[in-house]
């Protein structure tokens, strides 16, 4: 029994290995063409960029963009929805080919992923509870507790030990100091915690201006404070560890270029945001 048991285990181990060893090929672009599908990761937590409609289908701005990108590559898009932390960590192991998930271009992330050119821009916005009377300007946030999504640019922005370098290295002017940040698994939990009441758990949140807009639209008692603290260029990203990653994002950049030019991105932006946010702000 002992010996046989050992061999059965060994056999099971070998079987699972042979089933899972992925075929290594020339490059990710070739893999996509060969499989006829572009596997896209998207963080399905944010309306209107990537969320679930009433029938539970994945829809949104990012989804439309990804579907169109796949079409222009001559393949179909398939979506996977891993946790945001897993997407920005890189080393995807070929489980998906591309992130079209509103990822901000930052120098830190560029160490693990290759970025395409931006396909749209989003403002980073502070917000407080509707009932708040004391925080009227950005410097009123000093010493306050602000909620945000873990692994987001907003977290890097408020972390004194990190320097946030976004996009083409535009200088970020720090208008707030001494803010205590409290990270949540997504921005949405932070917004909901702020909605409990002014100062109950949070004094404010720092998130995308569109998240704040969406919250207000859905009746969440929050209001924006001050002008956006920085603008983020959002791009597609590809796992640097994967062979052919650079070629893939080059191809994706070309597709974005044409989608900017022929108005496709503007069309999607109007459809989901009701305004054109595909042009560089400021």
């Amino acid at each position: 029994m002992n010996r046989r048991g050992f061999f059965i285990l060994l056999f099971l181990a070998a079987l699972s290995l042979s089933l899972t060893l992925s075929s290594v090929s020339a490059g990710v672009l070739e893999d996509i063409k060969a499989n006829g599908e572009l596997v896209v990761s998207s963080d399905a937590n944010y309306a209107p960029q990537s969320f679930l409609d009433e029938e539970g289908r994945l829809v949104g701005f990012d989804i439309d963009v990804a579907t169109e990108v796949a079409r222009r590559l001559g393949v179909v898009a398939r979506f996977v929805t891993p946790d945001w932390d897993l997407i920005v960590a890189g080393k995807w192991g070929g489980r998906w080919d591309l992130s079209i998930g509103s990822m901000t271009i930052t120098a830190e992330r560029a160490e693990v992923v290759d970025f395409s050119i931006p396909y749209y821009y989003t403002p980073a916005q502070f917000a407080v509870h509707k009932d708040n009377k004391t925080i009227k300007a950005l410097d009123d946030f000093s010493g306050k507790t602000v909620g945000l999504g873990a692994g987001t640019t907003y977290e890097s922005y408020l972390d004194p030990n990190q320097t946030l370098t976004i996009g083409g290295g535009e200088k970020i002017v720090y208008q707030v100091k001494g803010v205590k940040s409290r990270p949540y698994s997504t921005d949405m939990e932070a917004v909901q915690d702020l909605a409990l009441g002014d100062g109950v758990r949070l004094d404010g949140v720092l998130t995308s201006g569109y998240v704040v807009d969406e919250a207000i639209k859905k009746g969440v008692p929050v209001k924006p404070v001050g002008n956006p603290v920085f603008y983020e260029p959002l791009a597609a990203a590809s796992d640097r560890a994967r062979p052919g990653s650079a070629e893939l994002v080059k191809k994706i950049s070309e597709i974005f270029e044409s989608m900017h030019k022929d108005g496709t991105l503007t069309k999607f932006s109007m459809k989901w945001y009701g305004m054109d946010i595909t042009k560089k702000a400021r």
Partner: peptide
């Protein structure tokens, strides 16, 4: 759910978050 499997908790979280009704 953290790996992106659409089971009970994953579905509840996605729908809850995007509607601010966790």
């Amino acid at each position: 759910a953290f790996l992106g499997v659409w089971e009970l908790f994953f579905r509840a979280q996605r729908v809850g978050r995007q509607n601010f009704r966790n």
